Simulated assay, not measured.
Amino acid sequence: MTSDVVVVGSVNVDLLLTVDRHPTPGETLLGGSGAQSAGGKGANQALAAARRGASTGLVGAVGDDAGAAVALARLTAAGVDLGGVATVPGPTGLAVVTLARDGENTIVVVPGANAAVSPAVVEAAAGTITAARVCVLQAEIPLASATAAARIAAAAGVRVVLNVAPAAALPLATLRLADPLVVNEHEAALVLGWAREAEGLSAGEPPSSPSSSSPSPTEGGEVTPEAGLDLARGLRELGIPGVVVTLGGAGAVGISSDGEWTVPGLRVAVVDTTGAGDAFVGALAASLARGAGLHEAARDATRVAAHAVQRLGAQDSYPEKDEPLP
């Protein structure tokens, strides 16, 4: 099947726990509620792309347990092609999300079936990957598999959107296939440091951006756009064609052959940030598949992410195609 977007990535069940505040180490707290829902960075991004109108396929794996039906329900309803999703013995991936009253969360991911998305599985899905306009990848499947998918896509002229989340030390050759690399400010600093080490550069100095290794927060705790651009410059100077750094409530910044740009954040009432980054990546991929430039795609993605943080859950919070956005 030819698609606008193919996502190679994780599929999870999210267990969402609400608390007044996050516990300190060794502390026990009583939670307010607990609920299961669909999640996983790959599945989230596929749903977000599909709901922005992109024909979307997913390559991944679920277990042979009851969690698989929970994990795939919204994708099926959205018309995502699940022909590349294998069922393997054992549990479906699990993410335990603890959400505090201020909207911030902590997440612990147990890979489960996602560990079975091997390079061989990716190679078997090469036809699906090469038939897409955009291939989206993250780091919740084995890194060798993400690397294989990037190589297959790039060799066929398919645009690679690489979201290095959670932060991981991918080979620099893989990072250089990304157009764009999408990371938040924390992931950007880590990936930049690892990439510099791989190139034998000083751990304290990016190629020509002295402030890149330590983003400067504002008084409110957000990273400034200029600090984000420093990180993006450092990454691009390592040979990555396009870079997008997301800054939470401060918006996003980017750099590519078309130059540098900033997308201001949208001030909305934050309920839950779970999955907002995935909403951004999926919406970005859908726009790029339609032929939008990176700056334009990031503007739309920022609006989708702002919609998502106003609602509980990951996939539960993603807007339908015609739903009004901030």
Rank of each mutant, 00 (worst) to 15 (best):
A292P: 02
V223P: 01
L192N: 09
V182A: 04
S202Y: 02
S212I: 09
G204A: 14
W194N: 09
E237I: 07
V270F: 02
E185Y: 02
A301Y: 00
V271I: 13
T246C: 09
L192E: 14
H186C: 02
S212N: 05
R267H: 15
T273Q: 06
V223F: 05
L247C: 13
V271R: 14
E197Y: 06
A292D: 15
R233V: 04
T218P: 00
S212Q: 05
V270C: 14
S208V: 06
R299Y: 03
L288M: 12
N184T: 07
W194G: 04
A178C: 08
R311M: 14
A189C: 08
E226I: 14
E197V: 09
D316A: 15
S317Y: 09
A188K: 00
A227N: 08
A189T: 11
I240N: 14
S208H: 11
A298R: 01
V245Y: 00
V271M: 05
S257V: 09
G234P: 01
V223L: 03
A178S: 12
S209F: 03
G249A: 15
A252G: 10
S214D: 08
G204Y: 03
V268R: 13
A189K: 00
G204T: 13
E296R: 01
E296D: 13
A173N: 09
S317L: 12
T273S: 14
R311V: 12
A297F: 01
S317P: 04
L312M: 10
E237L: 07
A286L: 10
V271C: 07
E199A: 14
S216E: 12
E226V: 12
A286V: 11
L238N: 01
A314N: 03
V191T: 13
V182P: 06
G242A: 15
D179T: 08
S211D: 15
A289I: 05
P180T: 07
E296P: 02
D179M: 11
V309F: 06
L288H: 10
